[in-house]
């Protein structure tokens, strides 16, 4: 790797100060499992002047629950989330999603904040610079999207317009189903945004001098059932081809509420709101599930090679409802 200045931030304020001082030329390093790959492959046209270690900030890797819900420090590792008793009990969809990420070694250092902020996996975007030069595209400033005419088997089938790279984060899909908020701290103070508003087609809402500090999850109503299903060619390592996270309230076989989030089919996590509306108040059976699944993927406009993802997404919605 090409060299850079390195700082160990001791507080969030310090990290934000350094970010600000470098005016967009510094990056935060949490677990490092995504960032270091990016720096080694140099797929971005810019290279950071400084890397700021935020593992040295103490006290932001907590998992705390109260009557309102759950608060998770951005630096909580995926392994700790996957193992957390409280998360497994009441927010199991997140524990499952965190446990489905990458490999055990990665989960030991990768953080929830980092998993949300990781860069996309589009293989044009991530093409390694040292094997013939990086590929430029809109996400890097300007350039055509090669995926539209190229090999788009893993790209977006919904809402892809300017960029067809899909949101790679498994935990984001679970958090979308959990209606989580992301707490962001910058020089001017802190704010919270709903998870769905955190993501944008070309990235997220973080300004260059802001960082994610906390994930807030409202406590789901008692008696809900949660499900996370991720389709991949292999179980470990792979990023989702299609994923679904769901939280359902079912009383006497009748659906009283549902939140269903779909992953890896759009540039951001998306909620299948029409499918949710379709099932609320109805008995949970194969017919309801099939109707809802149809609605969930009705908006899909696949590219040349990824029509199968709509079929898979449909199947996952159905399974999540019936589970």
């Amino acid at each position: 790797m090409k060299s850079f200045k390195h700082f160990n931030a001791r507080t969030v304020a310090e990290a934000v100060q350094i970010l600000k001082a470098f005016e967009g030329h510094a990056v935060l390093n949490a677990g490092g499992t995504d960032l270091l790959g990016a720096l080694k492959d140099r797929f971005l046209p810019t290279y950071p002047e400084a890397v700021i270690n935020i593992k040295t900030i103490s006290g932001i890797d907590y998992v705390e629950e109260d009557a309102e819900g759950l608060r998770i420090g951005a630096m909580a590792t995926l392994a700790s989330i996957a193992r957390s008793t409280v998360i497994k009990e009441r927010y199991s969809v997140l524990a499952e999603a965190a446990g489905a990420v990458a490999t055990p070694q990665i989960r030991n250092v990768a953080t929830l904040g980092g998993n949300l902020c990781q860069d996309v996996r589009c293989w044009y975007y991530r093409y390694p610079h040292h094997v013939g030069g990086r590929i430029l595209c809109l996400r890097k400033g300007s350039g055509p999207c090669q995926a539209v005419t190229g090999d788009n088997r893993y790209h977006a089938i919904i809402e892809g317009k300017r960029c067809f790279a899909v949101c790679p984060s498994d935990t984001a899909i679970a958090l979308a189903a959990l209606d989580a908020h992301i707490r962001i701290t910058g020089p001017a103070g802190a704010r919270s945004v709903p998870i769905l508003d955190f993501f944008k087609t070309l990235g997220n809402v973080l300004k260059p001098d802001e960082m994610v500090t906390e994930i807030q999850i409202p406590r789901p109503a008692d008696g809900n059932r949660q499900r996370f299903i991720k389709l991949t060619l292999r179980k470990p390592i792979d990023f989702a081809v299609v994923s679904v996270a769901s939280i359902m309230m079912v009383e006497n076989g009748i659906c009283r509420g549902a939140r269903i989030a779909l992953g890896a089919i759009a540039p951001t996590p998306i909620r299948a709101t029409k499918a949710e509306q379709e099932i609320v108040g109805k008995p949970i059976d194969a017919q309801t599930a099939a109707a809802a699944a149809d609605v969930a993927v009705a908006a899909a406009k696949p590219l040349s090679m990824n029509g199968y993802k709509a079929v898979q997404a449909r199947a996952l919605v159905q399974r999540a409802i019936l589970a």
Binding site: G32, L36, V109
Partner: peptide
């Protein structure tokens, strides 16, 4: 004591 990937860990960290 925990297994980690030394290729994805900066020595300074």
């Amino acid at each position: 004591g925990k297994p980690i990937l030394s290729c994805m860990m900066l020595t300074v960290e």
